[in-house]
Amino acid sequence: MRKFLLLLSALTMAIGLTACSSKDDAKTEKNDTPKETAKEAEAPKVDVKKELVKFYIELGNKINAKDADLNAYEKKASNPDAKPEELPTVEEKAAASESAAAVASELNSTQIPAGLKDQQADLEAIVKDYAASYQAKADELKKDTPNFEAADTTFAQAEEKLGKVFESAKLLAPSLGKQVN
């Protein structure tokens, strides 16, 4: 009987210790939660690489939606073997100018996603350069002999800046020029 009581009291003590230790663990877990973890739970972590790529694709899609007439004009105008009847017409030139102006307008209304707030200033400057490039083309197309050198230089500068933003996020530099032409 004594052995039984001793065994029963040992079992009771073991259960009591187990119950107390699990309560202490629960308190420790609650108290060990740092404030940073609570902040992280409030604001989910943004995948900057994914957001940058998504922004880049959307930017290209916006341009492609508006620049068809400009691309057609540039293709015809850049053909060195073109016969006079194969050169762009006045109507095509006017349509290309309108197309370039529409791209510039679309780019000027582009918003940088909230997930890219650390890159926002750089991306706004880049989009502004792209818009300026298209606006320069629109303005040049209103002249008798358009010259796109300045517009192409501005576009190349924007490409370089975009590449730096991508490289800072450990991504390969993209080429928007390849995507939109």
Score class of each variant (00 low, 15 high):
Phe4Glu: 13
Leu6Gln: 12
Leu7Glu: 06
Ser9Tyr: 04
Ser9Ile: 10
Leu11Phe: 11
Thr12Phe: 11
Ala14Asp: 04
Ile15Tyr: 06
Thr18Trp: 10
Lys23Gln: 15
Asp25Glu: 11
Asp25Gln: 11
Lys27Met: 09
Lys27His: 07
Asn31Thr: 13
Asn31Tyr: 15
Glu36Lys: 14
Glu36Thr: 12
Lys39Gly: 08
Glu40Met: 07
Ala41Leu: 09
Ala43Phe: 12
Ala43Gly: 07
Pro44Tyr: 04
Pro44Ile: 04
Val46Ser: 04
Val46Asp: 03
Asp47Ala: 10
Lys49Ser: 05
Lys50Ile: 05
Lys50Tyr: 07
Glu51Val: 10
Glu51Ala: 14
Leu52Trp: 03
Val53Gln: 05
Leu59Thr: 14
Leu59Gly: 07
Asn61Phe: 07
Asn61Val: 08
Ile63Gly: 06
Asp67Ala: 13
Asp67Ser: 12
Ala68Phe: 10
Ala68Ile: 10
Leu70Arg: 08
Leu70Asn: 12
Ala72Asn: 13
Ala72Trp: 08
Lys75Ser: 12
Glu86Leu: 05
Lys93Glu: 00
Lys93Leu: 01
Ser99Gly: 06
Ala101Thr: 08
Ala102Ser: 15
Ala102Pro: 09
Ala102Glu: 11
Ser105Gly: 14
Asn108Tyr: 10
Asn108Pro: 05
Ile112Phe: 08
Pro113Ala: 08
Pro113Tyr: 08
Ala114Cys: 05
Gly115Arg: 04
Lys117Ala: 09
Lys117Pro: 02
Asp118Thr: 10
Gln119Met: 07
Gln120Arg: 15
Asp122Thr: 07
Leu123Cys: 05
Glu124Leu: 14
Ile126Thr: 05
Ile126Gly: 03
Val127Phe: 15
Val127Tyr: 05
Tyr130His: 05
Ala132Asn: 15
Tyr134Thr: 00
Ala136Leu: 11
Ala138Pro: 03
Ala138Phe: 03
Ala138Tyr: 02
Leu141Asn: 01
Lys143Ala: 05
Thr154Ile: 03
Ala156Ser: 13
Gly163Pro: 00
Val165Met: 00
Ala169Leu: 04
Ala169Cys: 04
Ala173Val: 02
Ala173Pro: 03
Gln179Met: 12
Val180Phe: 05
Asn181His: 12
